[in-house]
Each structure stands twice: as C-alpha cells, then as structure tokens.
C-alpha cells in the first residue's frame, strides 16, 4: 500500500510541492506502477550476476592532464543571482 504520506515523502526528497488533490491520485498511480513492476520479483535470478552497467565496457579512463576550465564569467552567466564571483543562494545555515 502506498499512502499519501509516502507520496509526500518521496515528493519532498525531490523538492516537489504537492497539495492534497495532487497527492491522492498519485498514490494510486504509484501503487499500480509498483504492482506492475513487482512481476519481476517472481523471476528466479539466483544464477544471474547483478547488472551494474548496460554497456559491455570496463575501465574507461582519462589521463591526469589539466584542460582549460570555463572562465568565471562564462560560469556565472548561467545563474540569475551572483555576488563576488560566486553563485548566490538563500542562506543555508542559521
């Protein structure tokens, strides 16, 4: 059972604001989705190693070489709020 509380918790982890009307149908939808996916639980996968990546690739490295970075101006152009060369955000510590 997915409760409205579960929905709100998951939403809060993703910083999504939901009101009561939105949360209720989502609980039902989520439950349907989970039930559908739950079919997989019936499969016997004891002999199968967990997939950690879908590409048949290993050991892709880069060498320890410095490449040019963006300039401060280029970087800060991507934000709406800046101050003293930094990104400006609401205060996070009391």
């Amino acid at each position: 059972m997915i409760s409205e509380k579960d929905v709100k918790y998951v939403a809060s982890l993703s910083r999504i604001h939901l009101n009561e009307e939105e949360a209720k149908p989502l609980a039902k939808d989520l439950e349907k989705i989970l039930n559908y996916v739950a079919k997989l639980q019936k499969l016997d996968v004891k002999q199968i190693a967990p997939t950690s990546h879908v590409l048949p690739l290993n050991n892709v490295f880069r060498e320890d070489i410095v490449r040019p970075s963006l300039t401060q101006e280029e970087t800060l152009n991507m934000t709406v709020d800046k101050m003293n060369g930094s990104f400006k955000v609401p205060k996070v510590i009391e």
Partner: peptide
C-alpha cells in the same frame, strides 16, 4: 593531489579565484 579533478580536466588546486576551475562536467 592529482593535477586534475577526479572526473574532468579542471585544475585540482586550492585557493583559485572563485568559480574559475569549473567545467560542464563538475558543474
């Protein structure tokens, strides 16, 4: 203390002007 960062080529040094050692990967 590698020369570059763990997943990109930005300089791995302390004390640079703010936001001058960043790139699309580390941002």
């Amino acid at each position: 203390k590698t020369k570059s960062k763990i997943f990109c080529g930005c300089k791995n040094t302390f004390g640079g002007e703010p936001n001058t050692q960043t790139c699309p990967v580390c941002l």
